[in-house]
């Protein structure tokens, strides 16, 4: 991928994504952390588009920065007295060391191994290919994912529902 457009795009998006991910850890107020999280989701979506994965990029925007960010915001809003600070636990130093080690290990692995790079150009359009793959090659995982979504939705609703309002559901 040598045309300058994608290179510039990659570096810009990489900086945005990693910068905002770092800000999520560094910023004090939890609401600001969520906003930076959304920014990093959008950065990752941009990276997908530079990898010519347009369907997944748009799905990322729709699901991550559209739905999951709202879930996180609702969690923060529904826990008012819990303090909105983004403080760290006492395990701060070992966490830094461990994640640094993980980062170097992954980095070394990715640079050292010779991936069998194929000289295939980017995909023209992926939406129909994904659709076809989902429905004939991965039909079983597709159904399982559907069942899992249903179970997760019901579980979340039942956990959070106030015990006292069974009868009041339809008032």
């Amino acid at each position: 991928m040598e045309d300058t457009g994608t290179v510039v795009a990659f570096w810009a998006l990489a900086i945005i994504t990693i910068g905002s991910a770092f800000m999520v850890a560094a910023v004090r107020n939890l609401i600001h952390a969520v906003v930076f999280l959304v920014l990093s989701f959008l950065g990752v979506a941009g990276l997908y588009i530079t990898l010519s994965a347009d369907f997944v990029g748009v799905v990322q925007i729709l699901i991550y920065s559209g739905a999951i960010a709202i879930l996180v915001i609702f969690a923060i809003v529904l826990t008012p007295q819990a303090g909105r600070d983004n403080a760290e636990t006492s395990m701060r130093l070992p966490a830094v060391v461990l994640s640094g080690l993980v980062a170097t290990m992954l980095g070394y692995a990715s640079i050292d191994t010779n991936w069998s790079i194929s000289d295939r150009p980017g995909f023209e359009e992926t939406a129909s290919a994904i659709g076809v793959a989902l429905l004939d090659k991965y039909i079983l995982p597709f159904e399982i994912a559907a069942a899992l979504m249903l179970v997760a939705m019901l579980g979340a609703i039942i956990i959070v529902r106030d015990e006292g309002t069974e009868g009041a559901a339809e008032d």
Partner: peptide, 19 residues
């Protein structure tokens, strides 16, 4: 590399955050 750094930041958040 970008993926590794992102993963490391995510790991740090998961381990170190109080909330």
């Amino acid at each position: 590399m970008v993926g590794a750094i992102l993963f490391a930041i995510g790991l740090y958040l998961a381990l170190a955050k109080r909330n």
